[in-house]
Design a binder for these strands. Structure first.
Length: 741
DNA sequence: CACCCCCGGTTTTTT
DNA sequence: ACCGGGGGTG
């Protein structure tokens, strides 16, 4: 094991193998390096089985990056390790052993939209008024309880006799019941149900404890109680727990993260060894000094003395804008200047803001100027209605118990099945104690449903069940193509004929590409796993660097990333720090950490700006500078001339429309170029004769690899010589085959 | 009973 | 962009 590239502290942390270990890793101090080298060292120098290694991260992106870096050190055995997010690892465990707590391995995952629909349906049952109790607040309250590991029953015991909580207690209980009935889990449940599994099935817990001899957790400061408990269970016997984190970068308190988990690590795990990584390899002295000048205002933090050997570098550039358009213009001009005069490229720049809504002014300015940019997060691909609809279809195909997905798609596209009919199906299902889809099996028995509506329901049932019958024999793309064809979703959008529906059709094809990519990448591509993967994917994960665009994102989304040049914008009172943190000291400290995270993303150049005025809720408001600006030590900063950028700038040529009307740029490589009157059909690779030719190497789901020796297009028949199963004649459109590179 | 169009509200951070 | 409500139409 070559440890030459590591400094002393890093090397000592890597070489400490047994027992609980905390690595306090300041920003840019090489924590991923330590983590990956430690894992490599275990495997290479201590003969630890790769399958005994568990490494947990918060985002998929961090997980795949870690996997790659481990692989570059120890090679393909990496695939035997479990490296993933808390949620993904819990899904994996629950797929295997969830049956022991009453969940089928086909359970589906509910995202926040599904969750919202479920809460609403509970409201309906309980007669709760949305205007009195906003659905969002209930969602939040349920999630907060779950993050603290308070079950509905526990919540009831805790608030016994409190009449203000009676409604919520009923709601929480019903919500959990319905989740179970639907064989569904929300994000928080993935953790909680895994813990429940460990609690109630000691032999299952024992299996995983024995299997995962070495456990690693990245960003430990962001763990909540459930995540803490999950790790505690797994490490209880051998205590080989290696956690890496930085209290100064804890920014998820609102999501239940408890900074005490890292602060009290030594008490929780007696005998823990502690290593402090304090040398920063990322930023210039000026940037680091500025970061320190801000974070030192937080009381009670673990003392850390981050230092660097790097040069002082340029001073931090400060700018006060007239209003947000001016601020955007300033950023644009600076980027253009740096690209023109120095050796910077567009993708070296990141613009970091507190709220997603702030991206708009920058998008307008960049679009007007033709500057390529990419917004990370914000309007998400997977949040599009048509994608959500298709996801719901696929979820229903996998899990027919899922009433929420059923209700989403039963009348999408329009089948003349409105609210009243859906209600009748629901009542009938409740009476029989079955799912809504099951109730449609004998739709004729549902009271008050006849004629056209009855036929449509029957056809819907047949469609879903027909597609489901192919689950184990067909590729996901084939099921998807079947769904597109049978549901008529494309035709419905074509009939609309609007620009908007064209966009939706494009998105559907783009979604198909996502599925194709999943199939290529996955060893055993199945719909269940595709759905789980997509449900747990965040937009940060799809971030690809080299497309040479300026990046726009929230500070939260920037965590774990670094950029040569960073703009921190909107440093105003009530915005950053957020107005919600004003009367709460702990919340303000978290905002300050957020500011610290933002500053420490920068390698060479840092710009900070704010505006005198800002459009807010449609009003033009005067703004005050952020308290964090005042905390930034002025000796590391210099102001730029304000007036130069304060001239009036042309309005974007786009029609002035709603605040939310943001037009994201097409993702590179995925956008479809429109060519004349090209028939839509040709854009989609339909299974029939989808480009198989003689000599193609193929993979069959059951027969394995083989080669095509003849193609009979008219008869849709392929003759294939399989490596292990001899010669077979198969249907090009029906057989589960795909070409392999 | 279902559909369509128009209008208004939405704006912290997200696995 | 999406959702929900209101009101008109078929």
């Amino acid at each position: 094991m070559n440890l030459d590239g590591l400094n002393d502290v890093q090397r000592n942390a890597v070489l400490a193998t047994e027992g609980p270990i905390l690595v306090v890793a300041g920003a840019g101090s090489g924590k991923t390096r330590v983590l990956t080298h430690r894992i490599a060292n275990l495997v290479e120098a201590h003969d630890v089985f790769p399958s005994s290694i568990l490494a947990i991260t918060f985002t998929n992106k961090a997980a795949s990056e870690m996997k790659q870096r481990i692989e570059s050190l120890v090679g393909p055995v990496t695939s035997q390790m479990w490296v993933g997010t808390f949620h993904a690892i819990c899904v994996r465990i629950l797929r295997r052993d969830g049956d022991k707590i009453g969940y089928s391995s086909d359970f589906v995952i509910y995202d926040t939209t599904d969750q919202k629909a479920l809460v609403k349906s509970c409201y309906k049952t309980l007669g709760i008024d949305e205007k009195m109790t906003p659905v969002k607040s209930s969602q939040f309250k349920i999630s907060a309880a779950k993050n603290d590991m308070i079950s509905a029953e526990q919540y009831e015991r805790d608030h016994h006799g409190d009449f203000r909580e009676r409604e919520f207690i009923k709601l929480y209980k019903l919500y959990q019941e319905k989740l179970k009935q639907n064989q569904a889990m929300d994000f928080d449940d993935l953790l909680l149900k895994t813990i429940e599994l460990f609690k109630t099935n000691p032999e299952v817990l024992h299996y995983y404890q024995k299997r995962f001899r070495y456990i690693h957790v990245d960003e430990y400061q962001d763990t909540n109680k459930a995540q803490y408990t999950f790790v505690r269970y797994l490490s209880a016997n051998h205590q080989n727990l290696f956690v890496v984190g930085d209290g100064d970068q804890s920014i998820y308190r609102w999501r239940g993260a408890d900074i005490r988990n890292i602060q009290e690590f030594e008490q929780d795990y007696p005998g823990a060894q502690i290593f402090k990584l304090e040398q920063n390899y990322r930023s210039t002295k000026n940037i680091l000094s500025l970061a320190n000048s801000v974070i030192k205002h937080n009381p009670g933090r673990r003392e850390k003395n981050l230092w660097t050997e790097a040069e002082a570098g340029e001073k931090i550039q400060y700018y006060l804008a007239y209003e947000e358009k001016d601020e955007a213009r300033f950023v644009l001009e600076q980027i253009k200047k740096k690209i023109r005069d120095e050796d910077y490229k567009r993708s070296d720049f990141a613009i970091l803001y507190r709220t997603n809504a702030q991206s708009r002014a920058f998008e307008d300015a960049f679009m007007l100027d033709g500057m390529p940019y990419k917004v990370v997060g914000g309007a998400k691909f997977y949040d599009r209605k048509e994608i959500k609809d298709l996801m719901a279809y696929l979820k229903l195909i996998v899990n027919t118990q899922d009433d929420i997905s059923f209700q989403r798609v039963i009348n999408e596209p329009k089948r003349n099945l409105g609210d009243k009919t859906v209600e009748k199906i629901q009542n009938h299902a409740a009476m029989l104690g079955v799912s809504m889809l099951d109730a449609c099996r004998k739709a004729a028995e549902i009271e008050g449903i006849t004629g056209k509506a009855l036929q449509n329901i029957e056809a819907f049932y047949e469609m879903i069940m027909g597609l489901k019958a192919n689950l184990d024999t067909h590729f996901v793309t084939q099921i998807f193509d079947g769904l597109i064809e049978k549901s008529g979703i494309i035709e419905a959008y074509e009939r609309e004929g609007s620009i908007e529906s064209d966009g939706r059709i494009d998105n559907i094809y783009e979604f198909r590409v996502v599925i194709e990519e999943f199939e290529k990448r996955s060893e055993d591509p199945n719909l269940r796993d595709f759905l789980a993967e997509t449900s747990l994917m965040s937009d940060q994960d799809s971030l690809e660097d080299e497309n040479n665009s300026v990046l726009l994102m929230t500070v939260h989304a920037s965590k774990g990333l670094e950029f040569p040049a960073v703009f921190i914008v909107g440093l105003e009172d009530q915005l950053f720090p957020s107005f919600r943190s004003m009367d709460d000291e702990e919340a303000l400290e978290e905002e300050r950490r957020l500011c610290y995270v933002a500053i420490t993303r920068a390698e060479k150049l840092l710009f900070v700006s704010h505006a005198r005025n800002r459009n807010h809720f449609g009003r033009f408001e005067a703004r005050q500078p952020s308290v964090f600006l005042k905390e930034m030590a002025p000796e590391f900063m210099e102001g730029l001339e304000e007036k130069k950028f304060a001239q009036t700038f042309p309005e974007p040529k786009t029609k002035p429309v709603s605040f939310f009307d943001i037009k994201p740029q097409k993702k590179q490589g995925k956008s479809t170029v429109k060519v004349g009157a090209e028939p839509v059909q040709e854009k989609m690779a339909i299974p029939e004769n989808s480009g198989f030719k003689t000599g193609d190497k193929i993979m069959h789901k059951a027969f394995g690899t083989g080669m095509i020796v003849t193609v009979d297009k008219d008869k849709d028949t392929l003759t294939i010589v399989f490596d292990a199963h001899g010669i077979k004649k198969l249907s090009a459109s029906m057989a589960p085959i795909k070409t392999i590179g």
